[in-house]
Design a protein around this nucleic acid. Structure first.
Lengths: 106, 106
DNA sequence: GGCATAGTTCGATAGTAGTCGAACTATCGC
DNA sequence: GCGATAGTTCGACTACTATCGAACTATGCC
């Protein structure tokens, strides 16, 4: 049974608003979410535009986003794909993501 | 010149999204914001429904909200009135407050 | 002025979050 | 199997946040 290394994700119904807000309240995480709004990325591509960040740091931020239910992180061969849980978020917190993404990045 | 003890407030144009999200990401602060959505309160009335919180703790949360630009805190005689900066927030981050307040409290 | 009231500010402490390097796990290709 | 690659997890350190009591400031009332 290949690929049994799934990470835990909260289900859509149990998302907590304050956790989501907290996950989005970090500039580097928010910037990543903006990019994920345009489509899934593999983890390595989640690096910020300008500089490199240690893998462990990036992984930590992904964990925060994942545990809040903002992103999904699924294994795909040797890599992992990170995607925005847009439908789940829209379903649970209508308009929130649109409002956050609708503001121009600073 | 009576009442020259105004606290600093960021102006509407300079509000930072991540700061606002962080201010709203604390359960007790979010609960207070929900109540402020129904109208201004004096500081003493900002105490959480059930229990009492030390004045210094409450003041700290008000400071976080104020510095993020979420609330306004103005002196009025011996007391202070805390109010939601709804227009400024709607202007700068359209739909955000509605989305946050539209979700039922947990 | 003197006192009570309403809140903020200060200082200390405990818990939590961010950052990084090193170790670990799993997959792919040879 | 062996090595290389892609990420996560662990441990340590630092920085920030929450909480509280005590001190401080300003207003109103007598």
């Amino acid at each position: 049974m290949p690929g049994a290394r799934d990470l835990p994700h909260p289900d859509a119904a149990s998302l907590v608003l304050t956790d989501v807000l907290f996950a989005l309240s970090d500039p580097s995480r928010l910037a990543l979410v903006r990019r994920l709004a345009q489509g899934p990325l593999e983890v390595a591509a989640c690096q910020p535009a300008g500089g490199e960040v240690p893998k462990s740091t990036l992984s930590h931020h992904l964990k925060t986003l994942r545990e809040a239910g903002v992103v999904r992180n699924v294994p795909e061969g040797r890599q992992r794909y990170v995607s925005l849980r847009r439908e789940d978020l829209d379903d649970r917190f209508p308009g929130l993501l649109d409002a956050v993404l609708g503001t121009a990045p600073e």
